[in-house]
Design a protein around this nucleic acid. Sequence first.
RNA 1: GCGCCCGUAGCCGAGUGGAUAAGGCGUCAGCCUCCGAAGCUGAAGACCGCUGGUUCGAUUCCAGCCGGGCGCACCA
Length: 557
Amino acid sequence: MIKSLIKKLILDGAEKAFEQGLLPSKSFPEMEIEQPRHASHGDLSTNFAMVSASVQKMAPRKIAQAVISAMDDKEKIIEKTEIAGPGFINFFLEKKAWHQVIDKIHSEKDRFGSTDVGKGKKVQVEFVSANPTGPLHVGHGRGAAVGDAIGNILGFAGFDVQKEYYINDSGRQIRTLGLSVWLRLRELNGEAVDFPDDCYKGSYIKDIAAALNTLKGADILEKDEEEAVLDCAGFAAEDILTGIKEDLSRFGVSFDNWFREQTLFDSGRITEVVEDFRKKGIIYEKDGALWFRTEQYGDEKDRVVVRNNGLTTYFASDIAYHMEKFDRGFARVIDVWGADHHGYIQRINASIEASGRSSAQFDVILVQLVNLLRGGRPVAMSTRAGEFVTLRDIVDEVGKDAARFLFLSRSYDSGLDFDLELARQKTSENPVYYVQYVHARISSIVAKAREEKMAPDSPLEWTGSVSGLVEPEEMNLLKILASFPEQVEKSAATLHPHVVFTYLMKLASAFHGYYNKHKVLTQDYDLTLARLGLVSAVKTVIRNGLDLLGVSAPETM
RNA sequence: GCGCCCGUAGCCGAGUGGAUAAGGCGUCAGCCUCCGAAGCUGAAGACCGCUGGUUCGAUUCCAGCCGGGCGCACCA
């Protein structure tokens, strides 16, 4: 908000400078306004003069001079300006310019930080979408944390967001699941079976078989293989899916929609798309299979959509699924995938282009792999042998908050070491407590103030004396608070939740420093009110930020 | 071989064209009769993988190389 004020001052100034003949051109390129790294460079700084140099055909410092001389600071929020270095215009603001933010935070409360840059545009974020063939593991956890946070952040930035989970409930892996359960079921009934290598070996398969056995074991044993396997598959998939939903909900992740692959078959959507593409000539036949000319759209080679046995591939479903998404009216579709699926992007892009849409409406977020460690040593994981640490195990061991915060602590572009021992520690090594501690500390201060009747109850009554906030640490906090909305915007624009994480760490650090240096509750009534107004604003922003990441903000710890 | 991601202090890492490269861990020296020490203050530690290019300006963009991770099925 302060930035936009400054921006307007600059543009108005430039306009006026042009009218006065100080500037030759009326065209003003996009400028950056940012908080300089060093306080000696002012509160805010712009590169306006530098980016205008080529348009104005003038030296940046001269442009800066012209703009400053024509600027009209009616509200007197600028203490002074200076031209620095190659042509930066540095602004030193009056303290009152920063004081306003407290009022704003207390009136907007849990909406502070939200913006309308999204303009209500419909966006779908699809994430996790793990096959219902086994429990969720760490990698799914990272994807869940990232997808959920991105959804929250986009929503806060004014997009109309739907979170969706795609269930692969048909196809070969589901049959394999059914077969695995069927074999275990027969084992339970005393039969000696040969358990194939490509079947699922996890102990959860035995649990499912046992449950199914008591339910209707005898029934299934009577059926022939095909039917029995199908029965087992249906039961197992639903059972696992129920578990997945539970795990996700305990992880604090909820979806607006669960979409089943099977519906694409039932509605005829898949054959429809294949037929459509065939008519358009982008699908051809070779070796008894149908191929999609994805190479024409930049893929390495063409891909099969219908196998020579007549069955459609997973890719065919996915084409239909993405068509379906756009048909549902989403202007923008975002998929969150594990990085090992990156080779798939070209293909989906191809199908979107082929259907006459722009692949610019489609984003894939590739989440790099997670290395699970315990005390610095890798945790052995083998899906094949059915030995792995599940997301549920992790939530049980380290808690939802610590897990989510760690998953979002750095960019998903890099691999992540997740150390269970570290995540469990309630020490400074664990950033989640560092931030939550701020919230709890402030709660405690506010509670004490109320108990001892040091201030009126409503925060709205605290802001009258904000002018008492003059300490450098207070000004620093105010500036950080004021930048929250733009950090949310940046996070939304780049689809990177760790921007919010980094912001929260910065705010928390500034608060802890302030807390150690200055008392909030003092003998001076007005000063106490002002500081209560400040710290409770910090509390609100910490909570709003943690909310976006799906981490709780406790009153006590 | 081809494709995607990564390469910033002993370690983990922020920084998507700007002025003196965040922060954390670890190391060293300090701070609790006082609002929560899960906290704070200070010190030491960086040819931002290498070589070129674009630019007034490159850790940031481009190219090539080196190193690491992950993929390259009529599997999902």
